[in-house]
Simulated scan of single mutants.
Amino acid sequence: MLRAIFQAAIAAADPALSLKPHLPAPGKGRNIVIGAGKAASSMAAALEAAWPDVALEGVVVTRYGHKTPTQKITVLEAAHPVPDEAGESAARRIMAAVQNLQPEDQVIALISGGASALLTLPAPGLTLEDKKLVNKALLASGAPISTMNRIRTQLSAVKGGKLAAACAPAKLVTLAISDVPGDSPAIIGSGPTWYEGADYRMIATPMMALEAAAKKAAMPYKILGDALEGESAELGREMAALALRETGPMLLLSGGETTVTIGSGKPGRGGRNTEFLLSLAIALNGAKNISALAGDTDGIDGTEDAAGAIITPDTLARGRALGLDATQFLNSHDSYSYFKALGDLVMTGPTMTNVNDIRAILIN
């Protein structure tokens, strides 16, 4: 059931289903497509399918391994979460694609989570190496995504509406998949095409995914919010206390993006979802009627190859049988290794979309 709930949340954010209803009419002049993010390629493919007879051109950039086939729109790949030279080259090609446009032209911007790192063009006076160092420091700091993206905007020649300005005088329409708390257009991908009064259309959000997950479960549920933040381990303890007060059957759903503050020590392997789950399991201490899944809807928890993991009432007992100390793994930020040893990782591969994390706690 937990796996089915998670898959329903991912399916709700599939551009193949969610993009077409939000499209404008084709432009009278050129129709140029630009974009960036983990879902940029699948969004481009969905746009081509929706407009088979429209002459489309343009370029988008996505994360390595997230490319899908397209016929008219060029798809480039670059690094995430720390930017690389391919991301800088892609940003320059995207900026070049919107030069010398006319009022009758239309630009469709496809923006999704991950765009901030993938669309990287240093501001004057800065280098790509400067941006890499800042990104690495931010990722280890425990700062919320909204803070990280505000800082990234100040260091960029394309974020914070600068890409939108380059599209003038053409009409600009942005189709976005939100992966940030509050769905703020200025925060999604650091807002490259956002400005006050922009034509900005949300085609998928974390709340849509949570509602789809609740519908799939077909049981009593509570959505605790789509914008939960804070330390992953602390949220695990808070959710355990909440779950222990509930009587089943009940499904507790939540979304948002927590953080893991690494500190000065060398971390193990893991992402915010597996860290949350290991903390949750320790706090539940084998409660017999509670299981949970937490995963990133893009299929990648942090930088690992797992979307997340599942815990069951015997998670700690099975770990002890293998000689594993759950608390030690949590303290060393090595939650991925713990769940891998138990065979409890959730492996989806790249999902080609991203509406942030989904956490489901099942009380029966």
Results as ranks from 00 to 15, higher is better:
357 D>W: 00
191 G>E: 05
244 L>C: 13
9 A>D: 01
135 N>C: 13
14 D>M: 12
328 Q>Y: 10
195 Y>M: 09
206 P>S: 11
197 G>S: 05
330 L>W: 01
25 A>N: 14
306 A>Q: 06
41 S>G: 09
77 E>S: 08
280 L>G: 07
44 A>W: 03
94 I>P: 02
223 I>H: 05
133 L>C: 03
173 V>F: 10
274 T>V: 15
239 M>R: 14
262 I>K: 13
197 G>V: 11
12 A>T: 07
174 T>N: 10
117 A>G: 15
272 R>F: 01
135 N>S: 15
114 G>I: 09
166 A>R: 03
312 T>V: 13
46 A>M: 07
307 A>S: 15
327 T>H: 13
93 R>I: 00
345 L>S: 03
245 R>P: 00
187 I>Q: 00
318 R>C: 11
123 A>F: 12
349 G>T: 03
298 D>Y: 08
296 D>P: 00
167 C>W: 02
185 P>Q: 05
315 T>I: 10
313 P>R: 08
141 S>L: 13
343 G>L: 11
317 A>Y: 00
317 A>V: 08
36 A>E: 03
24 P>E: 01
272 R>K: 13
114 G>N: 09
183 D>A: 07
116 S>F: 04
217 A>S: 09
31 N>Q: 11
155 L>T: 01
180 V>R: 05
93 R>H: 10
296 D>L: 09
7 Q>M: 14
286 G>Y: 02
339 F>I: 09
358 I>Y: 01
291 S>L: 02
5 I>P: 01
57 E>M: 13
235 L>H: 01
259 T>E: 12
20 K>W: 00
1 M>C: 10
120 T>N: 14
214 A>H: 06
166 A>W: 00
54 V>F: 07
28 K>G: 14
19 L>A: 11
355 V>S: 02
103 P>Y: 09
153 T>Q: 13
33 V>N: 02
91 A>M: 08
345 L>F: 09
265 G>L: 14
327 T>D: 13
298 D>N: 15
79 A>K: 06
249 P>N: 06
160 G>S: 08
206 P>C: 12
317 A>G: 06
43 M>D: 01
104 E>R: 14
48 E>N: 11
306 A>R: 04
35 G>Q: 03
340 K>W: 01
133 L>G: 00
213 A>F: 03
233 A>G: 12
54 V>L: 07
53 D>T: 15
319 G>T: 01
39 A>L: 07
362 L>Q: 10
111 I>L: 14
76 L>V: 05
112 S>C: 11
72 K>V: 00
53 D>Q: 14
153 T>F: 01
120 T>D: 08
311 I>Q: 12
241 A>E: 14
54 V>S: 05
209 A>L: 08
263 G>W: 07
162 K>N: 06
133 L>A: 15
325 D>R: 12
324 L>N: 03
139 L>S: 12
87 G>E: 06
13 A>R: 04
